[in-house]
């Protein structure tokens, strides 16, 4: 079961993503962004980083990379696609996920652990979690404020497309758990079909106890289980 991890110029979480995939027993291959076919890959990860230096806007130039036509083809065919952090930004810029990610309200590049609530576990990315489960995952971004116009936002909620929401892990944190000003506390969404996930937190940085939290492991275990069902 091979998963492609796309490397754009400026990606920097590609090795971590490949490591996390291998950690759960999946095969992972790093694919340069000029690739024009992704034959033989069951899923795709667009990793975090700063593709094209975040020039113009985060993710805005990466969407024109040749490999994106193939990523779109796989997404439309129903294969799982995960965009983490900058990968989420690329997916929204490419129109594979609705909305956009704007500069954090406080203008800080924020690098810390945050609380998340799993809103649904009937996706290929979250079946290893319980609905309502609270997770602790790291974030590291300057443009993570999820924005969509009111109609799009309403549609997302109606179709239950919000998968992860920022949440308070302790009652004391209840005032400032949303790290970037995201509307509806949105940290991760899927497309209407449920096979394309974008999230700002970094599950690949939370798969081994040595990293402080293993709460991200479920994303990769879920993906593995989903791919095994298909195969």
């Amino acid at each position: 079961m091979k998963v492609a991890v796309i490397q754009f110029p400026g990606s920097n979480c590609d090795q971590d993503a490949a490591w996390a995939l291998k950690w759960v027993g999946l095969e992972a291959e790093l694919i340069w962004h000029t690739a024009t076919h992704l034959e033989g890959f069951a899923a795709v990860v667009l990793p975090g980083g700063f593709s094209y230096g975040d020039y113009l806007r985060a993710g805005a130039l990466a969407k024109f990379s040749p490999v994106m036509a193939e990523v779109r083809r796989l997404a439309e065919r129903g294969n799982p696609v995960i965009g983490i952090c900058n990968g989420f930004q690329v997916l929204t810029e490419a129109g594979l996920l609705p909305g956009a990610l704007l500069a954090n309200t406080n203008l800080h590049f924020t690098c810390k652990e945050v609380g998340l609530r799993v809103e649904r576990n009937d996706t290929p990315f979250t079946q290893a979690y319980r609905p309502g489960e609270l997770l602790r995952l790291p974030i590291a971004h300057g443009e993570g404020r999820y924005y969509a116009d009111p109609e799009v936002l309403e549609g997302l909620e109606e179709r239950r497309q919000v998968v992860f929401r920022y949440a308070a892990l302790t009652p004391a944190a209840s005032a400032d758990y949303n790290p970037n000003g995201s509307l509806n506390d949105i940290a991760g969404i899927v497309n209407a079909r449920g096979n394309v996930l974008g999230l700002m937190p970094h599950p690949e940085r939370a798969v081994e106890a040595a990293l402080g939290t293993t709460d991200g492991l479920g994303v990769f275990e879920s993906l593995k289980a989903a791919l095994e069902v298909v195969a």
């Binding site: 806007r57 810029e93 909305g99 956009a100 924005y147 116009d149």
Partner: peptide, 10 residues
């Protein structure tokens, strides 16, 4: 070109 580069969402 402006249309190509701008993000119509925001």
């Amino acid at each position: 070109m402006a249309k190509t580069l701008a993000n119509p969402v925001m």
